[in-house]
Amino acid sequence: MASIDGALLDFKRLDRLATGDTAIHRLDPRAKVLATLVFVVTVVSFGKYEVTPLVPFLIFPVAMVALGNLPVAYVIKKIALLCPFALVVGIFNPIFDREVLVQIGSLGITGGWLSFASIVMRSILTVGAAIVLVGVTGFPGVCLALERIGMPRVFAVQLLFLYRYIFVLTDEGSRMERARKLRSLGKKMEPGIFGSLVGHLLLRTWQRAERIHMAMLARGFTGEFHTRRDTRFGGRELLFLLGWSTLFIILRFLNLSQLVGSLVTGISP
């Protein structure tokens, strides 16, 4: 099934980015997770009709892509998919909010379009930040960071197990789906067949979980999970976190776009 395999390849590609070895990759994951959270919260704290003040925030994902040596085209492609739900909901804004807020020459821009543009901009920034975070930190890194910030151990272990077996089980699922397709002569999957196909997959998953548990017991598992924690939150991390956070807060209250625009047009805000 092309779509499953495609999604998996895409997933693996993003996952592999985290194996890079740049200064950004080497930072303690906590610094990157926290900076990203500050970033996202600052971005969404802007008013509904604000578009231009959001633009300078692009510097964060852009800088991370550059410093983390991530493939630019790939990241742009991922961001371009955006979040369909946000766009679907956002596209109603121009319909319901038709008051003209901005007049550029003879072109009147309604509040609806303005807020829609703002939603698109927010999507680009927040989606970009999430992708970049995974690209420079890796999923286990993000888990480790969250755990050390206070996420319960049980949940961290849950995330790691899930992550480990995604590849194994999606492979299994796509093999079953392929086998069904080959014998169904172009017929679509009916819910009943789906039920037994997925039921089979579920049973096999359950058996696998039993085997994994045996493998854990065989190596002395007693319910306590030990993982390596050799990261260190040092000066570089503090600088990274404080530096970016300060910038975000400055950009929050100082419309840089407006200022630069004023400098060139001579219009004060």
Binding site: M1, I4, T170, G173, E190, L197, M216
Partner: peptide, 25 residues
């Protein structure tokens, strides 16, 4: 204890199952 791997692997299962589409009659 045996629920530790079970929950994790079932999460991966949900993930895999979500990728398999079926047609709604």
């Amino acid at each position: 204890d045996s629920r530790v791997p079970l929950m994790g692997v079932l999460g991966a299962f949900i993930f895999a199952a979500q990728m398999i589409n079926f047609s709604i009659p």
